[in-house]
Design a protein around this nucleic acid. Structure first.
Length: 447
RNA sequence: GGUCCCUUCGUCUAUCGGUUAGGACGCGAGAUUUUCAAUCUUGAAAGACGGGUUCGACUCCCGUAGGGACCGCCA
């Protein structure tokens, strides 16, 4: 609420994933935080793909990220920006930095760098690369050897990050080395590209994972070298696995589509994710518009949170119970193709089946934690009749049980509507009339 | 190893110097229910440790321990 109509204008945030894999759960939360921040203040969220590393670029990953965001119902403004497509502009800025004396060409070879690393290791002293080319005359450069461009970073003083989550974080400049901004093949590196893009795209707030905190210091140095305004940073802690270690594949760092396939609802996942590392008093279940109203980066915790499937399930169950039946059915139809055996159900899901499904839905959704459970709960709709009887059912259907069923059958057939309340009434009446306990009647019926 | 960050029930969290430290998930018990689920009631469960500052510290400061992130011509 604080700066919703600040004179500075509406914020511009961005979600900037690298296309190395799917959209993982931490990325999804970062996207959600960005989205909430922008939505709550009438701002914009941009989407940029950080694809400067050509060897790792993967179009399928981009598609997975876009699909994931769409499924989560997180929308962005404008076109998706490819960072690589802007390489020309990044090089241009590098040239400016060179011209202004804020950067220099460096002919240090990978082999030389390795040697420096090794000796630092052997002497057990911290490694900060100090390139001799920072001071040397480029005329002395060896012929035919490619060079990189390094930022001529300040060696004295400190670089300070005023972070909305982390607070004031101070880095001594002597600890930071001259980072490479253009590779020897002429391609800009991530740190340069990010700064140029965020500046050109007029990004005002950078909300991203803490793994970028040290980058923030280096990026700040580039902003300063260019004389540009430094955006406001908010570095969000990472999500950890149940054992406290960084979330990995064996934990829950699955692609967002995996959560879809496990039968989670986007609204439930959003609600779960927003409460991981952020809170608004004791509020647990909140609508998207409440999230938008309440969310602020300064309320994000500094400590990492562990991913807990049990809580996600509970939330998901809640959202399923309160979901509209029709919507639930279409969600089910969305996931069905991805489920084992789902194709078979899809094939039989005609108008008639849909109607039956809808009738059964109120009862079904009461006891399902995921859509997958909901679907298996609906198995009876698709099963072949008559149903095969298992042992327990056999036992219950002894002579007495069968007799009771036979007695009840005409009454049930006489029922006007097959509604739960009405049927229950019939069964109760019969039980009382025959002087039997309810269980005696109901158990065979279930069988 | 260096730099930086973190530390309240098992987990997610509230508290913003004065509370019987609250809520949620999970777990236990009970009620309800033909079963399950849901729902309701209820129980157990926490300030890492050690020093300060203060009339008073979970809250502020220092140290210790533990955990994490980063340390690429990756992003």
């Amino acid at each position: 609420m604080t700066d919703k109509s600040a004179s500075a204008g509406a914020p511009v945030v961005r979600f900037a994933p690298s296309p190395t894999g799917y959209l993982h759960i931490g990325g999804a939360r970062t996207a959600l935080f960005n989205w909430l921040y922008a939505k709550g203040r009438g701002g914009k969220m941009l989407l940029r793909i950080e694809d400067t590393d050509r060897e790792r670029n993967n179009p399928e990953a981009v598609a997975a990220i876009v699909d994931g965001l769409k499924w989560l119902e997180l929308t962005w403004d404008g076109d998706t920006v490819s960072q690589f497509a802007r390489a020309h502009r990044h090089r241009q800025v590098a040239e400016e930095l060179l011209a202004s004396g804020h950067a220099y060409k460096c002919w240090l070879t990978p082999a030389e760098l390795d040697a420096m690393r090794e000796s630092a290791q052997a002497e057990k002293r911290p490694l900060t690369i100090r390139s001799p080319w920072r001071e040397r005359d480029p005329a002395e450069a060896p012929a035919g050897v490619p060079h990189v461009i390094r930022l001529k970073a300040p060696r004295e003083g400190e670089t300070v990050i005023e972070d909305q989550v982390q607070g004031r974080v101070v880095f001594a400049n002597k600890e930071l080395d001259d980072l490479i901004i253009v590779r020897s093949d002429g391609n800009p590196t991530y740190n340069l590209a990010v700064v140029v893009d965020d500046h050109d795209m007029k990004v005002t707030h950078i909300i991203r994972g803490v793994d970028h905190l040290t980058n923030a210091a280096r990026q700040t140095q580039i902003y300063q070298a260019m004389g540009w305004d430094v955006p406001i940073f908010a570095h969000v802690p990472l999500i950890h696995g149940p054992d406290g270690a960084k979330l990995s594949k064996r934990h829950g760092a699955l692609g967002i589509e995996a959560y879809k396939e496990m039968g989670y609802l986007p609204a439930a996942l959003r609600n779960y994710l927003v409460r991981l590392g952020w809170s608004h008093g004791n509020d647990e279940i909140m609508s998207t518009s409440q999230m938008v109203d309440w969310f602020d980066t300064v309320d994000i915790n500094r400590s990492a949170a562990r991913f807990d499937f049990a809580k996600l399930e509970d939330l998901n169950g809640h959202y399923i119970r309160h979901a509209d039946d029709q919507e639930l059915l279409s969600r089910i139809e969305d996931v069905l193709p991805y489920l084992p055996g789902g194709a078979g159900i899809v094939a039989r899901l005609d108008a008639n089946m849909r109607a039956k499904f809808l009738i059964a839905m109120p009862g079904l959704k009461e006891r399902a934690k995921t859509l997958v459970e909901l679907i298996s709960g609906a198995d009876f709709l698709f099963a072949d009749r008559p149903l095969p009887l298992d042992e327990k059912a056999q036992k219950l259907l002894d002579a007495e049980g069968r007799q009771r069923l036979a007695d009840m059958l005409p009454k049930l057939e006489a029922a006007g509507h097959w509604k739960a309340s009405e049927l229950e009434e019939i069964v109760r009446t019969y039980a009382e009339a025959s002087g039997a306990k309810l269980g005696k009647v109901a158990q065979p019926l279930r069988a």
